[in-house]
Deep mutational scan, measured.
Amino acid sequence: ATVHVKGVTYHFDNPEQAEKFAKRMAKELNGEVHVDGNTWHVD
């Protein structure tokens, strides 16, 4: 799974980790999470 945060890409072997990371980053950055298959975007 892949997480894109403000133009930076993070790779996770575990999709659950990717989801938790994306949601945590969105919270910290006051952003929104969008999911597209195995790819998470934090804007």
Rank of each mutant, 00 (worst) to 15 (best):
W40A: 02
R24W: 12
E19D: 06
N30T: 05
Y10F: 09
M25C: 08
W40D: 02
K23T: 11
D36F: 12
A18M: 01
N14Q: 08
G37I: 03
V8P: 01
K23D: 08
Q17W: 07
A26S: 05
Y10C: 05
G7M: 04
M25G: 00
T2A: 09
A18G: 04
F12L: 02
T39V: 15
M25D: 00
K23V: 11
G31I: 05
L29G: 04
T2W: 14
G37M: 04
F12Y: 03
M25Y: 04
V42M: 02
N38R: 06
K6H: 12
E28G: 05
A18I: 00
N14D: 14
K27N: 08
H41F: 15
D43E: 13
H41C: 13
G37L: 04
K23P: 01
T2M: 11
V3T: 01
T39W: 06
T2H: 12
V35N: 13
V33G: 02
H4I: 15
E19L: 06
V42W: 02
V5Q: 01
K23W: 10
R24S: 12
H11T: 09
T39Q: 15
V3K: 00
E19I: 05
H34A: 05
A1W: 15
G37N: 06
A18L: 01
G7Y: 04
H34D: 04
H11F: 14
A22Q: 01
V33Y: 14
V5P: 00
Q17T: 11
K20I: 14
V42L: 03
T9P: 06
V3M: 01
E19H: 05
Q17H: 11
G31Q: 06
A18S: 01
D36E: 13
K6G: 14
R24T: 11
E32V: 15
D43Q: 11
A22W: 01
N14A: 08
E16S: 10
A26G: 06
H4G: 03
A26E: 03
P15C: 10
K6W: 10
D36L: 11
D36I: 14
A1D: 05
G31V: 09
A22N: 00
K20E: 15
F12T: 00
T9F: 11
D13P: 11
N38E: 06
T9E: 10
T2V: 12
R24Y: 13
V8A: 08
V8R: 13
G31L: 15
A1C: 10
T39E: 15
V33N: 02
V8Y: 09
A18Y: 00
H4L: 14
N14E: 10
M25P: 00
T2C: 14
A1S: 11
V42G: 02
T2Y: 14
Q17I: 09
T9K: 10
N38M: 07
F12Q: 00
D13F: 06
G37K: 06
A26Y: 01
K6C: 15
A26C: 06
H34L: 06
A22L: 02
K23H: 13
E28T: 07
P15E: 08
V5N: 02
D36Y: 10
N38L: 08
D13V: 08
R24G: 08
D36M: 12
K20P: 02
G7D: 07
T2F: 14
K6R: 13
T2Q: 11
E28F: 10
E28H: 09
A26I: 02
D43Y: 15
P15F: 11
V8F: 10
N30L: 07
T2G: 03
F12V: 01
D36Q: 11
K6L: 15
K27H: 10
A1M: 08
L29H: 05
A1Q: 09
E16M: 10
M25L: 09
K27A: 12
N30Q: 09
V42S: 01
H41N: 05
V35I: 09
H34M: 06
T39G: 12
E32K: 14
K20D: 14
H11W: 14
R24F: 13
A1L: 06
H34P: 01
T9Y: 13
Y10H: 06
E28L: 13
H41Q: 06
V33A: 14
W40P: 02
A1H: 14
E19P: 01
Q17V: 09
V42P: 02
A18T: 00
G7L: 04
K6A: 13
P15Y: 12
W40F: 14
W40G: 02
D36G: 04
G31E: 04
G7P: 02
V35T: 08
A26W: 02
D13I: 08
H41M: 08
V42I: 08
G31N: 03
F12M: 03
V35Q: 15
P15A: 14
A22K: 01
R24A: 14
V5W: 04
V3L: 01
M25Q: 05
E16Y: 09
L29Q: 04
D36T: 11
W40I: 08
N14R: 06
T9Q: 10
E19R: 06
T39I: 14
N38S: 07
K20M: 12
F12H: 01
T39Y: 09
Y10P: 00
E32P: 04
Q17R: 06
Q17D: 15
K27G: 07
W40R: 03
F12E: 00
F12I: 01
N30K: 10
P15T: 11
V33C: 08
V33S: 05
R24L: 13
N38T: 08
G7K: 04
E16V: 11
D13Q: 09
V35F: 14
E32Y: 14
V42D: 02
W40E: 02
V35D: 03
A26H: 02
Y10N: 01
V5M: 06
D13N: 10
H41Y: 15
T39R: 15
G37A: 04
H34S: 08
V3A: 03
Q17E: 15
A18V: 00
E16N: 08
L29W: 04
D43N: 10
R24H: 13
H11E: 08
H11I: 09
H41V: 15
V35E: 05
A1I: 14
D13K: 09
T39K: 14
D43H: 14
V3D: 00
G7R: 04
E19S: 05
V42Q: 01
D13G: 07
K23L: 12
D13A: 11
A22D: 00
A22T: 02
T39H: 15
V5R: 02
H11N: 06
D43P: 03
R24I: 12
E19N: 04
G7Q: 04
W40L: 07
V5C: 08
E28N: 06
K20Q: 13
V35S: 10
E16D: 12
Y10G: 01
T39A: 15
E28Q: 10
Y10T: 03
N30Y: 06
V35Y: 13
Y10M: 04
P15H: 12
Y10L: 05
H34W: 14
V35M: 12
N38A: 06
E32D: 12
H4E: 09
H34I: 08
V42N: 02
N30S: 08
D43G: 11
K6I: 07
F21V: 04
H4M: 13
V5L: 08
A26R: 02
A22E: 01
T9W: 14
W40N: 02
P15Q: 11
R24N: 11
K27V: 11
K6T: 07
E32G: 07
A1E: 04
N30R: 09
D13M: 08
E19T: 03
H41R: 08
G37D: 05
N14C: 10
E28M: 13
V3S: 00
N38F: 10
T2I: 12
K27E: 12
V3H: 00
V5A: 06
F21E: 04
E19W: 05
E32F: 14
Q17F: 07
A22P: 00
Y10R: 03
Q17K: 10
K23Q: 13
H11R: 08
V8S: 07
M25F: 04
H34V: 07
H11P: 05
A26F: 02
H41T: 13
Q17S: 12
G31T: 07
V35H: 13
E32I: 14
D43F: 15
G37C: 05
D43T: 15
E16T: 10
V5K: 01
V5D: 01
D43I: 15
Q17N: 11
H34Q: 06
V35P: 04
G37P: 02
W40M: 06
T9N: 07
V33P: 05
G7E: 05
D36V: 13
N14T: 14
Q17G: 07
Y10Q: 02
F21N: 02
L29Y: 06
W40T: 03
W40S: 03
M25V: 09
T2P: 01
V3G: 00
D43V: 15
F21P: 00
W40H: 03
R24V: 09
D36P: 01
M25I: 11
V3F: 01
A26M: 04
H11D: 05
E16I: 11
K20T: 09
N38I: 05
E16P: 04
K20C: 06
Y10S: 02
E16H: 09
H4P: 00
D13L: 08
M25K: 07
H11Y: 15
V35A: 10
D13S: 11
P15S: 12
V8D: 07
K6Y: 12
G37V: 03
A18H: 00
G31C: 15
L29C: 07
